[in-house]
Design a protein around this nucleic acid. Structure first.
Lengths: 159, 159
DNA sequence: GTATCTGCAAACCCTTTGCAATAAG
DNA sequence: CTTATTGCAAAGGGTTTGCAGATAC
């Protein structure tokens, strides 16, 4: 298998100055304030697993400091606009996010049995985005591609 | 522009016996009952605009008969399983659906300015689905592709 | 110093669910 | 007849919001 089960991805404790600076600059440019809450949220996103939901983020932050979910919900649009974060999919009635800054653009395979998400890259997709946009006179800003089905491991299991 | 603004699509008053029969058979096969509520919901979906949300469907049905939203919410999974309906996107905190039975598979362009959705077909996508699935040992059952940006009309408008 | 941001709790809103009455098979 | 389905109203659950106090700049 060439794709990656994203539930595994997690970063070490190295420096994240570059990414954090991107976020701080974004805030300053907009006239927003650089608060310790916003920095803690950004830091957590940059360090933690690639895919997560608000609750996971909240619990992870809560183990280190006092923060409210409201602040997380209010920070998410900023993180998305700054290019650090993206919505990836809705599951069980709530949104799941992924860190995007500094990562290669990729798409997702969703297993309907075990619910796991796998990532893959398909260069053709950028070409489709470009071709269709040109054809339609559309100024494109991004795309999303998802395949659903049954993963190799789940197929192997005896029913 | 080759794509279609789906807010326009609407069907006439012709016969829908084939599609309705597909749904009735689906219900019977599963041991579910063919009720007048389920038929009215399916009929409305088959006749109305291609894209809609639960409220639009509810109001459209309510103008002709007495029905509860609960019945609509309970019918939706059946309509999806039967192949008449698909979830297309989440907007303003609620799901939007589209009729799929008898329609060619297509993808969506979403204009971030006017919020309109346009449809297009890109045959390469089926090839990507197939290629990646083979590569990953995945048994695929479908895919979704979306491009977002600014449509031609909105670009033309002076800022 | 002043406007933004935070935490809290309440409000929101879409969706789901329990229940008694109704209707399909 | 028997059991699934319906309508209603209440509950659920993720997300948003009003407000008073705290804090960035």
């Amino acid at each position: 298998m060439n794709s990656r089960d994203v539930s595994a991805g997690r970063r070490g404790d190295g420096e994240l100055t570059e990414e954090m600076e991107v976020f701080r600059e974004f805030l300053r440019d907009r006239g927003y304030r650089v608060t310790k809450e916003r920095e803690a949220i950004a830091d957590s996103i940059l360090r933690n697993r690639d895919h997560f939901d608000v609750d996971e983020l909240y619990l992870s932050l809560r183990s280190r400091l006092t923060i409210s979910k409201a602040s997380i919900y209010r920070a998410i649009p900023l993180l998305i606009e700054s290019g650090l974060l993206a919505e990836v999919y809705l599951e069980n009635g709530h949104m799941h996010y992924e860190r995007v800054y500094g990562r290669e653009h990729h798409s997702h395979l969703r297993c309907l049995k075990c619910r796991r998400i796998f990532e893959f890259s398909a260069p053709e997709l950028a070409a489709v985005e470009k071709r269709i946009s040109r054809l339609e006179g559309f100024k494109s800003e991004g795309h999303k591609f998802e395949i659903w089905g049954v993963c190799a491991a789940c197929q192997a299991e005896k029913a």
